[in-house]
Design a protein around this nucleic acid. Structure first.
Length: 285
DNA sequence: CACCATGTTCCTTG
DNA sequence: CCAAGGAACATGGT
C-alpha cells in the first residue's frame, strides 16, 4: 500500500488511536521485520513503553515511544514495504495470517501485518538519514531539485524512485507525476529543460497532495474485520474500488485511450525492472 | 505453469 | 570510487 500519500493518511488515522497508549505485551511472529534489532532488545524497549507521537518521513512511519520508567523518548521506525499494513483492532478480532508483530494495548491490539514481509518495525533508524527532502515541505526547492537532476544520466522515471532525490515518490506516483508534467519517462534527468524541471516539481507536489486529499475523504476501516482495505488497493483489480482506479490517470492503464483525449494510447514499458506507464502522445519529450 | 505486484538493499559489472 | 542493472527477499493474484 505504500507511497507517501498512503503513509500520510495512515499516520493521520493512527496517531489519535495510539497516542498515550501503553504497550502491555509484545509478540513477534516474524523476527525478520525487526532487523537489525533482535527480539530481545525490541521487547525490552517496548514492553511497558508508551506511544507519545507518530509522524512520517518519506514512506517511513516514526513512532515516538517512551520506554517504561524512563523520561527520554526514542524512535520506533516503521516501513510498510510492498504489502504491509498497520492498524488497531479488538482483542477478539481474528489475527491476520501474516501478522508480523502484535502489540497489546489494553483491550486492543496494534497489528503490523505484512504478506511478503518486506516491511520493517525496528529501533534502527539510520535509514531516515539517507532520505532526500520532503516533497511537500519547504526544503524541497526547484533549485535543489534541478541541481540534483543535473548530476544524473538516468531516465527521469528511474531517478524519481531514488529516495535521496526526493523522499516518498514510488512507482505509481512517479508515472502519474510525469504524465501530469507532460514529460517522457525516458528523458535523461540531466537533459530536462528548466521549464520541465519546474513543471515536474509542481506536478510531484500536486499529485501527492491530491492523493492525500482523496485518501483523507474515505472512511478508514482497519479494524481487521470484514473489508479492511477500502483505501489501500492499488492497481485496477476487480476488488479495487472504482474511485481508486479512476484517480490514477496512467498507472496500469496500458492500451486505454489517454484521459486527456489527445488521441494517444497509454503505453507500458519496463525501466530498471519496474513498469512505467505513459501517454506516448502527451509525453513525447 | 508463467508472469506480475505499492520497496529496499546488496552484488556484480563496466 | 561511481553509476547502472539485476537479483534477492516472500507470498499471492491472475
Amino acid at each position: 500500500m505504500p507511497e507517501l500519500p498512503e503513509v500520510e493518511v495512515l499516520v493521520r488515522h493512527l496517531a489519535p488511536l495510539i497516542q498515550g497508549r501503553k504497550i502491555h505485551q509484545v509478540e513477534v511472529r516474524r523476527a525478520k521485520v525487526l532487523a537489525p534489532t533482535d527480539v530481545e532488545e525490541f521487547s525490552r524497549v517496548l514492553l511497558g513503553a508508551t506511544f507519545t507521537s507518530l509522524t512520517r518521513r518519506g514512506k517511513y512511519l516514526l513512532f515516538g515511544i517512551r520506554p517504561a520508567r524512563q523520561r527520554v523518548t526514542r524512535i520506533l521506525l516503521g516501513h510498510l514495504g510492498m504489502t504491509g499494513r498497520m492498524y488497531v483492532q479488538s482483542l477478539r478480532a481474528p489475527l491476520p495470517r501474516h501478522a508480523a508483530v502484535i502489540l497489546k494495548l489494553g483491550r486492543e491490539n496494534f497489528i503490523f501485518e505484512d504478506t511478503r514481509y518486506f516491511g520493517r518495525l525496528t529501533l534502527e533508524t539510520a535509514a531516515i538519514d539517507r532520505l532526500g527532502p520532503e516533497p511537500l515541505g519547504c526544503e524541497f526547492t526547484v533549485a535543489g531539485f534541478s541541481a540534483a537532476l543535473k548530476r544524473s544520466a538516468q531516465p527521469i522515471k528511474v531517478k524519481l524512485l531514488d529516495q535521496q532525490l526526493v523522499a516518498g515518490v514510488g512507482n505509481i506516483y512517479a508515472s502519474e507525476a510525469l504524465f501530469r508534467a507532460g514529460i517522457s519517462p525516458r528523458t535523461a534527468a540531466r537533459r530536462l529543460k528548466p521549464a520541465q524541471v519546474a513543471r515536474l516539481w509542481h506536478s510531484i507536489r500536486e499529485t501527492l497532495n491530491e492523493a492525500i486529499a482523496c485518501g483523507s475523504t474515505i472512511p478508514l476501516n482497519f479494524d481487521g474485520e470484514g473489508k479492511r482495505d477500502g483505501l489501500f488497493y492499488f492497481g485496477r483489480s476487480s476488488k479495487a474500488p472504482a474511485h481508486y482506479g479512476e484517480r490514477l490517470q496512467v498507472y496500469d492503464r496500458q492500451g486505454e485511450p489517454c484521459v486527456k483525449k489527445c488521441g494517444g494510447t497509454i503505453k507500458r514499458l519496463v525501466q530498471a525492472a519496474r513498469s512505467t506507464y505513459f501517454c506516448s502522445h502527451c509525453q513525447s519529450a
